[in-house]
Design a protein around this nucleic acid. Sequence first.
DNA 1: TGAACACATGAACATACGTTCATATATTAA
DNA 2: TTAATATATGAACGTATGTTCATGTGTTCA
Lengths: 118, 118
Amino acid sequence: MIENEFCEATVIHEDTLRRVREEMPDEEPIYEVSELFKVFGDSTRSRIICALNLAEMCVCDLSALLNMTQSAISHQLRILKAARLVKSKKQGRVVYYSLDDSHIGQIFALAFTHVTEE
Amino acid sequence: MIENEFCEATVIHEDTLRRVREEMPDEEPIYEVSELFKVFGDSTRSRIICALNLAEMCVCDLSALLNMTQSAISHQLRILKAARLVKSKKQGRVVYYSLDDSHIGQIFALAFTHVTEE
DNA sequence: TGAACACATGAACATACGTTCATATATTAA
DNA sequence: TTAATATATGAACGTATGTTCATGTGTTCA
């Protein structure tokens, strides 16, 4: 049992700890990954993503589809756009949103198979 | 332009809206998917998952690895266990945690390739 | 039996987050 | 130019969430 340098935690398995320390991904990419998952971790945003995965849509259609106020949808689209998950295209006063990523579909597909099995 | 039955939202594209309504996944699996992503959406939990993906570990080793208090780790492990993402095995007074799912690795792998490219 | 240890857990606290409300911006049509 | 429309956005509000602190539970060892 060895005291850690930075906190009071006791270390029982020095060998595995050393190995995991070496093989662990850096903190930054892990942080970015969890930031990505955080965006997915709201059902409104997930529903928007599922919808945009089927068709390019404008804000008021999304609002009607999800039965939510235009403001709420717009706020969430802003977050999705900041995360570079959706892109927008303005035509007149209508703004069309669509998915801006190739991995989203794959990640969601895996997640769906996860929650639907067992 | 047609007024929606349940909210004041204006519908511009009736045809795509109808098609998306038909092809959209049900609300419940989408909700479950976003609940799963919500669990992944915290960097502490993501780091725990990355660690357990490399080795079965006890609480105090995780605590030392992530330089966090035993209590904080324990609380997060509770959440991961409730989500059936990790399982625990008690040996004496030491509790060993390991991943309890085959999809986690794939989902994280996809997410990593997403954040590391571009 | 009691001390030490590994872990769990409830309460408290600060912070983050999603929606609502009011309003601003930009475009079209009269 | 004015009214209507589609969207964006800031402030406010309630709620959810992660960590800390204190303490509880269960196990080992002297």
